[in-house]
Write a protein that binds this DNA or RNA. Structure first.
Length: 412
RNA sequence: CGGAGACUAGUUCACCGGUAGAACGCUCGCUUUGGGAGCGAGAAGCACGGGGUUCAAUUCCCCGGUCUCCGACCA
């Protein structure tokens, strides 16, 4: 991709009042655009990061046997009345009325998934079913804030699973838990699984995936040995107490919640009459689980965690491009950079080539730092024909390499 | 929804009771090219909306809107 063609360009100054680091850098870098508080467009760069994350999640979900679907966002009032959540979740739901019919914009999909299941299953042989989708969630937050971390409309991956027994649900629940940890690890985050309350979703205890971050809104009490973590909202112990397994005192820390998993048992199935015929011929209610990962929030979290005073430092796995190729303008060197770009692209490397003319070297460096692609390659008179200067975004060290060496290094 | 701050050029800001300035960005020309380049020329704003005070309001006052922060709230 030629940077000269990329829409839009970076912005030198962040909007005046913006405080959240993720908002500042994502807006300045041209990853997102704000329509209103809590409502953002993912621009091409942001969309690329989202696609990288989405693909990782998809791979991990598929490994658990889940299948990808896409459920609607506009829901009739009737389906929400079946579980009583039309009234119970009134605060978070966006509701609309048109020609005397009432609708809600989706803030979750348990009801929709259960409706699917009751229409398309009948016997125990049809279970379990595991389906997920990536789609927008609408939540009427009292106050949208912290940039992309708390929007009124955001992208989420939600997975639903339905089983014929609590044991089967529990087994899959643990599987998803591991898949989530793997997913977060792959995008560059180390998540802590914490016990929490279920809010409008369930009265039973749930698990949240929390990432340590000073700017987070949640707080957990946890053991650094990894055997205990609870959201402070339900924690019955306090920091400083020794943990049971002797890993030293419990700590209290600010965190960002990037995912969560719920076990509903038969509570929703009973209300919606989602049942199956078991071997004996008897009718039984099904067991529901639901599991979410906030995709847009994940992008914001990565920026909060991985940046310096010049810009973003994307983990390799989710960076919008593999390489930021910077050409320091010079007629003589133009064929060199053209050739190098082609060689990189032909080897399947995603390259953002800053081909702008009449833009100083300093400005190109500053933009490269802001955008945060992990590897910066420079082509100039100084590097020489067929050679590039390699610099990792997270280091000050540079080295000049033959293109073939750089290619080898990129492939490894 | 309560509290605080803000709203003036594309952006960041300044000024001011007498209808507006800078920087950056943008356009054109020349010159430049290893950390946000230089010179010259140019385009660009009825000052968030509405009301009030005043001879005169972008400026003071009131109402509304929007944004940011704090709080309450929260998969």
């Amino acid at each position: 991709m030629r940077y000269s063609k990329l829409f839009p360009k970076t912005i030198k100054e962040a909007p005046r009042d913006e405080v959240a680091i993720n908002a500042k850098y994502l807006l300045r870098g041209g990853f997102i655009d704000k329509l209103m508080a809590g409502s953002y467009t993912l621009l091409p760069l942001g969309k690329r990061v989202e696609q990288k994350i989405t693909q990782i999640i998809r791979e991990e979900m598929n490994k658990t046997g889940a299948q990808e679907i896409l459920m609607p966002l506009l829901h009739p009032k009737s389906i929400w009345n079946e579980t009583g959540r039309w009234d119970k979740a009134d605060e978070v739901m966006y509701k609309l009325k048109k020609d005397d019919k009432e609708f809600a914009l989706s803030f979750t999909h348990e009801e929709i998934f259960l409706d699917l299941i009751r229409k398309h299953t009948s016997t125990y042989r049809d279970f379990p079913v595991k389906a997920y989708h990536f789609s927008t969630k609408f939540r009427s937050e009292l106050r949208a804030k912290s940039g992309i971390l708390r929007g009124r409309e955001f992208l989420m991956k939600d997975l639903y699973s339905i089983h014929t027994s609590q044991e089967d649900l529990d087994k899959y629940y643990d599987e998803v838990r591991d898949a989530y940890l793997k997913t977060f690890e792959r995008v560059g985050l180390s998540a802590i699984v914490a016990e929490a309350a279920g809010g409008v979703f369930t009265d039973s205890t749930t698990h949240e995936f929390q990432v340590l971050c000073e700017t987070g809104e949640d707080e957990i009490i946890y053991c650094s040995g990894g055997d205990f973590a609870q959201n402070v909202e339900i924690a019955k112990v306090s920091e400083g107490k020794p943990c049971d397994l002797g890993h030293g005192p419990l700590k209290r820390a600010k965190v960002i919640e990037v995912g969560n998993i719920f076990r509903f048992g038969t509570s929703y199935s009973e209300k919606m009459d989602v049942s199956f015929t078991e071997r004996s011929g008897k009718k039984q209610f099904t067991y529901l689980g639901s599991y979410g990962i906030g995709v847009t929030r994940l992008i914001g979290t990565l920026v909060e965690l991985f940046h310096d005073d010049k810009g973003i430092i994307w983990p390799k796995e989710v960076a919008p491009f593999d390489v930021h190729l910077v050409h320091i303008e010079d007629k003589e060197t133009e064929p060199w950079v053209r050739d190098i770009y082609k060689r990189l692209a032909d080897s399947g490397i995603d390259v953002l080539w800053d081909d702008r003319e009449n833009v100083s070297a300093g400005e190109k460096f500053a933009d490269a730092d802001l955008i945060g692609i992990p590897v910066r390659l420079i082509v100039s008179k100084k590097t020489g024909e067929g050679r590039v200067e390699w610099k990792n975004r997270d280091s000050e060290k540079t080295e000049t390499l033959e293109v073939s060496e750089a290619l080898k290094k990129l492939k490894s």
